[in-house]
């Protein structure tokens, strides 16, 4: 165990909640709260999975995802997307960009946990 999850999210309370849920399940969680430099952070840290918020300061989650998929090194990296904008077209856009899982806020803790387990296990 001890797989790495990188959580890219800017809301402190949500970071706190997800970190608590995953840590308790044995994941090591790192966080990044700005859109800028997020891609570099992923590249240097090489996590097993990232949880990516859409509405981030400076660079949106979609742009980050696109950049990750364009880079061969991170093209296959499992990405779980979180968004507070629950419209269908947001989900469609994310799927087109190659997201692995798409979860709308507010979420249930067990869903997050199950998705993370499934994605990290497959990856």
């Amino acid at each position: 165990m001890g797989k790495h999850v990188l959580l890219i999210e800017d809301e402190p309370n949500i970071i706190e909640a997800i970190r608590f849920i995953l840590s308790r399940d044995g994941w090591s969680v790192d966080t990044h709260s700005d859109g800028a430099n997020a891609v570099e952070r992923v590249q240097s840290m090489r996590p097993d999975l990232i949880i990516l918020d859409v509405m981030l300061p400076n660079k949106s989650g979609y742009d980050i995802l696109r950049d990750l998929r364009d880079d061969p090194m991170t093209a296959k990296l499992p990405v779980l997307m979180l968004t507070a904008r629950g419209q269908t077209k947001d989900r469609e856009l994310a799927e087109r960009l190659g997201v692995n899982e798409f979860i709308t806020k507010p979420f249930s803790n067990s869903d997050i946990l199950a998705s993370v387990r499934a994605l990290a296990g497959a990856g």
Binding site: E11, N13, I14, A17, I18, I21, A84, R85, G86, T104, K105, P106, F107, S108, N109
Partner: peptide
């Protein structure tokens, strides 16, 4: 949704 997420979680 943002505050609700925290509350629910």
């Amino acid at each position: 949704r943002t505050p609700m997420t925290s509350i629910r979680s």
